[in-house]
Simulated scan of single mutants.
Amino acid sequence: MPKGLTFLPSLALAAVMAMPLAAETKPDADTVVANVNGDEITLGHVIASVAALPPNYAEIEDDVLYEFVIEQLIQQQLLAQQQDDLNRLNQLGLENEGRSMRAVQTVNALLGDVVSEESIQAAYDAEFGNFEGEDEFDASHILVATEEEAKEIKTLLDDGGDFAETAKEKSTGPSGPNGGSLGWFGKGQMVPEFENAVVALEKGQISDPVQTQFGWHLIILNDTRKSEAPGLDAVREQLAQSLQQDAIQAKIDELTQQSQIERPALDGVGPKVIRQIDLIQE
Score class of each variant (00 low, 15 high):
195 E>T: 09
171 S>K: 11
193 E>Q: 15
192 P>K: 10
222 N>F: 00
198 V>N: 04
228 E>W: 12
229 A>Y: 09
219 I>G: 03
167 A>H: 05
196 N>S: 14
174 P>Y: 01
164 A>S: 15
161 G>I: 01
210 V>C: 01
167 A>M: 05
194 F>Q: 08
179 G>Y: 04
172 T>P: 00
195 E>A: 11
156 L>K: 13
230 P>W: 06
163 F>N: 05
204 G>H: 09
208 D>Y: 12
193 E>C: 11
218 L>D: 01
195 E>S: 11
178 N>P: 11
165 E>R: 14
200 A>D: 04
208 D>A: 15
189 Q>P: 03
203 K>C: 03
189 Q>W: 06
195 E>Q: 14
182 L>R: 14
222 N>G: 08
169 E>W: 11
222 N>M: 02
232 L>W: 12
153 I>R: 10
221 L>H: 05
232 L>P: 13
202 E>D: 15
204 G>L: 11
232 L>F: 14
229 A>H: 10
202 E>K: 15
167 A>L: 05
160 G>A: 04
166 T>G: 12
194 F>D: 03
207 S>V: 08
203 K>G: 08
188 G>T: 00
171 S>I: 04
160 G>K: 03
173 G>S: 04
197 A>P: 05
200 A>E: 02
171 S>T: 05
212 T>H: 11
209 P>K: 08
230 P>L: 01
214 F>I: 06
187 K>N: 15
205 Q>Y: 04
158 D>T: 10
189 Q>Y: 06
160 G>V: 07
190 M>S: 13
162 D>H: 07
228 E>G: 07
183 G>D: 03
182 L>Q: 14
153 I>E: 01
218 L>P: 00
221 L>F: 02
169 E>L: 13
193 E>V: 10
187 K>Q: 15
157 L>Q: 06
156 L>R: 14
214 F>N: 12
174 P>V: 09
207 S>E: 01
159 D>H: 12
230 P>N: 01
191 V>N: 06
193 E>S: 15
213 Q>E: 09
154 K>Q: 10
212 T>N: 13
160 G>W: 06
201 L>E: 01
189 Q>A: 06
192 P>D: 14
179 G>E: 01
166 T>K: 07
231 G>K: 15
173 G>R: 02
195 E>M: 12
184 W>K: 07
159 D>I: 05
217 H>P: 03
161 G>Q: 03
158 D>N: 11
153 I>L: 15
208 D>C: 04
220 I>W: 02
197 A>C: 01
208 D>Q: 15
162 D>R: 07
199 V>H: 08
230 P>A: 01
207 S>D: 03
163 F>H: 03
225 R>E: 13
175 S>Q: 14
178 N>K: 15
224 T>V: 12
194 F>K: 10
179 G>A: 00
216 W>R: 06
177 P>I: 02
167 A>W: 06
194 F>V: 01
206 I>A: 07
188 G>V: 03
196 N>G: 13
153 I>D: 00
209 P>H: 10
162 D>W: 02
192 P>G: 09
183 G>W: 06
185 F>E: 15
206 I>F: 00
197 A>T: 10
172 T>K: 07
175 S>K: 13
164 A>F: 09
171 S>D: 00
194 F>E: 12
193 E>I: 07
171 S>C: 06
190 M>E: 14
158 D>C: 05
165 E>H: 10
215 G>I: 09
205 Q>G: 00
177 P>V: 06
